[in-house]
Design a binder for these strands. Structure first.
Lengths: 333, 333
DNA sequence: CTCATTTATGCTCAATCTGAGCATTGTGCC
DNA sequence: GGCACAATGCTCAGATTGAGCATAAATGAG
């Protein structure tokens, strides 16, 4: 098992060679054409065959800092400067690791990284995938996701499927809180909680047999599975990012040097999974002073040409570094 | 080095026995009489003698989940139900671990826990300490901390102490961003960034020699040191908690079953380190529906008796689970 | 060339939300 | 009784928000 100088070996199967080893996982996010993408790799699955997963590998003590090591590795893989890197969470569940053959604990330290360009040059087995392929119920941009009809039915059945009235009540409460069932609102940040609920309810194939019930495994409804519980990591990343853009100007790390306000809006919408009121969005960006105009305007596209703007890096040094408040509109179909 | 059944051994020196081991660290927070406290223990210092630190110990694979294991351990130690547990961060800097004798990487997974009662029964070497003893510049409740005068002077000297004009500019920018120097505002959430800046500037004794400069080490100014870079963990916890109370009703985990609105306000102020406008605070709590009145009122204290209220647990199931927006007032001296 | 379509941009308006205070009401204490 | 100290009620102006209306400036179909 010789490795190069990389701490993380992306293309390789990431079955942990040493059960007590610590691993790194990265959710590397880009946004192109208004779609949110995550870098995925093909890994050796638990069963035979290969399956999709996130870039991951064992932690090697090459760099003085976890983040520094991750940064260097990702930048080499994606040929892109990392605009933003954030530690997400350290997962240590023995029952969710995928391989718990050894009795020893193994940890995965997960990171979120935002990149501007999406050339994945070199990396043969890696590809950028729309992240909603894995979590279809999270995309409300075209209105309520159709996947939710089936999901809700299955969840209600799951909640009602227990004889214990107290447990049933608790399950129903969780449904209301996470999926907005029973009059609650959809909170776009509760991505992880929704995934975990589906997992418990047996709707996630990765849970194979761990939770008694078995439900629909239609990929169009419950999304494409990933190896090693990596969908949980992805869900964590999306939820975190959706929260972050509201109070920190991190979206700009995904944008090209100059862009139009509408492109910016599309990107924010892609991340948050909801549509925004256009005029109010520009007003927000304007008064926060997040961007400055360039001389150029777009051309060739449909509609009136838009002015190109660029991110005002100075805002990072100003006030409580603002982001975007998200307020869904009814612009959807 | 026999240990009990506890994954974390609090009273014991936590010099990692195996340099590749993963450790847990916990910031256990309580609030009594309007003061924020953290549970501390005495540990064997890097040099001779004992010094203060946070409860920590090696991770043992006893529980299926990291959080579950930490929860069980803390509850046993503090004799209190943990209201809230949150993973903070995983620290992996080789140059900050305190002992980096072995070449291997060692990680510390840090957790934040909130407890209601503060009986630390049993635990001989543990004690609750006002967390501002370790970070005196973070407490603005009695007005601008006097410690800041000296700190600012030292920081300005540090920033100006480099010949490279670009580096100097960057340092000054960071001073403005974190400490509000040069016209910026004080952002109470940037606790960690402030600590790290002081660390870099050589004002933190724990940095002994790692950063060239050596500055004031007056404890009243730069706070009481901790072993193993645990002050960084504490700073992370405080910053995180200060952010959290603004949008999640976590303060209530620190309150007794019933309390007055003013006690609640005192607790929020203790955590955030800033004073709030009283009338607006109650208005906020009222319209958010965070509490419900009880029959009882206080007596024996100075001033008009206050109505006792209790937390409405139902809000956890309602809307985007609100917290407190903090807006400092000028009530301070 | 003209019109329908599409996107960009400017502006308005009412409903809230916020930050700051003023005023009044109860209690324990001297 | 008069004070000091809290608890509560209410007001008010300014800023923020959520929703639209209206207009301008391109492209592409016919």
């Amino acid at each position: 098992m010789t490795r190069g100088q990389d701490g993380l070996a992306a293309g390789e199967p990431n079955a942990l060679p040493n059960p007590s080893a610590v691993g790194l996982v990265a959710v590397i996010v880009a946004a192109t054409d208004g779609e949110p993408r995550a870098l995925t790799v093909q890994v050796a699955g638990q069963a035979a065959g290969r399956e999709t997963g996130l870039p991951a590998g064992p932690l090697v003590p090459e760099h003085p800092t976890l983040e520094r090591g991750l940064r260097a590795w990702v930048e080499r893989q994606t040929q892109a400067r990392l605009g933003y890197v954030e530690q997400l969470y350290t997962f240590g569940d023995r029952d969710r690791q995928g391989d718990d053959s050894g009795g020893l604990h193994s940890l995965s330290v997960a990171y979120l990284a935002l990149v501007r360009e999406m050339r994945s040059a070199g990396l043969a087995e890696a590809s950028w995938r729309n992240w909603y392929a894995f979590l279809p119920w999270e995309d409300w941009r075209a209105g309520r996701p159709t996947a939710l009809d089936e999901i809700e039915a299955a969840l209600l059945a799951w909640a009602g499927g227990t004889p214990d009235p107290k447990l049933r009540r608790r399950r129903e409460d969780r449904l209301g809180l996470t999926f907005g069932l029973g009059g609650g609102a959809w909170n776009e940040e509760r991505v992880l909680e929704r995934y975990e609920l589906l997992f418990e309810a047996g709707l996630i194939p990765e849970a194979h047999g761990q939770t008694g019930e078995a439900g629909s495994t239609d990929i169009a409804t419950t999304g494409q599975p990933m190896g090693f519980d990596h969908r949980r990591v992805l869900a964590t990343a999306i939820g975190r990012l959706r929260g972050k853009i509201k109070y920190r100007p991190v979206v700009f790390e995904l944008m090209p040097p100059t862009f139009t306000l509408f492109q910016l809006q599309r990107t924010v919408e892609a991340l948050s999974g909801a549509n925004l009121h256009k005029q109010n969005f520009r007003r927000l960006v304007a008064q926060q002073g997040l961007v400055e105009e360039t001389e150029e305007v777009t051309s060739g596209t449909a509609g009136r040409p838009a002015r190109l703007v660029r991110f005002r890096r100075e805002v990072l040094l100003e006030r409580p570094a603002p982001g975007f408040r998200l307020t869904p509109s009814r612009r959807s179909s």
